[in-house]
Design a protein around this nucleic acid. Sequence first.
DNA 1: GAGTAGTCTTACTCGCGAGTAGGTACCAGG
DNA 2: CCTGGTACCTACTCGCGAGTAAGACTACTC
Lengths: 211, 211
Amino acid sequence: MRTEGRAKRLPRAVRERQIMDAAVDVFSRLGFHAASMDEISEVAGISKPMLYAYLGSKDELFATCIRREATRMMEAIATGVEPDQEPDVQLWSGLRAFFGFVGENRASWMVLHRQASTQGGPFAVELTDMRGRAVSLVAALLTQSTKAPATKLEAESLAAALVGAGESLADWWLDHPEEPAGVVAARLMNLVWMGFGDLVDGNVWHPPSRR
Amino acid sequence: MRTEGRAKRLPRAVRERQIMDAAVDVFSRLGFHAASMDEISEVAGISKPMLYAYLGSKDELFATCIRREATRMMEAIATGVEPDQEPDVQLWSGLRAFFGFVGENRASWMVLHRQASTQGGPFAVELTDMRGRAVSLVAALLTQSTKAPATKLEAESLAAALVGAGESLADWWLDHPEEPAGVVAARLMNLVWMGFGDLVDGNVWHPPSRR
DNA sequence: GAGTAGTCTTACTCGCGAGTAGGTACCAGG
DNA sequence: CCTGGTACCTACTCGCGAGTAAGACTACTC
């Protein structure tokens, strides 16, 4: 009668992965507060004391989730971006990588951004850190490409606005999942590169040919 | 010995206002789940049963808060926008009104957007409704001003992107309160009207003279 | 001043969820 | 076969917070 069901006696490293996956899933579905350690342990196929033994308290577990998912995302973007290209192409590849990641990891994005940004306290720190890395990246892109003598501060704040727009558009996308990633990315690309001023005149930006 | 302290025996309408104010305050400071009805009643200077008698359950109270603050904000924007002007000026006045409201009502914005967007369920409905009104407004602006034969759908999605950018930039602003409202509004205006493509060439948008 | 409608309180119940005590099953090496 | 260590469990404690019961106090009316 126990042919299936409980996989038994796995090494610690494996269990920790399972637990983290379950935690990200539950946190993203229910939110930090509404998520219970009982539910997480159940989804992970494990009992609560194991959870506490391996990952510590609820707060520690959540912080660990944020760190892991933030790292995954930044790596995905770093992999996807194409350096040594024209600024617009770099931005485009970065946006595609970003929305690609969010699209394939909705749970990650939820736990990462939506939840962490509404729980004050120590969690916001992890988020701020990741956002800071993203902003620096965009700011560098702008500084290197600008022809006008823009101050470093101006570039930073514009980068922050763009990153904010990307974050929000990704949030919005969660509520409109029918749109494909490329369309959403292209929309933001056009918005921030061309601006409405050009768009209402019919001038659109498009990627440079095929590859 | 009772010269001050409890204000006594106020009519229902007044109490309801006090309670709503307290609720918005507490919800925005602590978040929906962490906010307790005990704390709200204490801040309102009232006992818990009164709270339940007048505003119903915690969920009902929260939904009522969202509705009230959403209405306040939409009215502020409608008042601030200048119709019968060039599209960019209309957009500019709308953005100024929006960021002006958020700046003077940080608590409202928090309870309205940050909290409501992370609690799933019935609350999201109120938000979606308000966002829908804002999007329609912007979409109309775009449609009326566009020279290219843009589809209604294209305008709608661009409007959604802009509204999303505004929402996110307002969220971001909460974490960077040192910036003045006008600067943030101008930043978004430049971003969405001119685009990075122009900005890196030194072409900026600026309001048409003084008034 | 007796009735009654509305304001307001103290003092509970009760369930849920974080965290734990105190084990049991299984697998090394001796 | 014992000894220890690691994976794993059932079954609790305990506080917090949503929601309520039952009544007290005030004010206004006839």
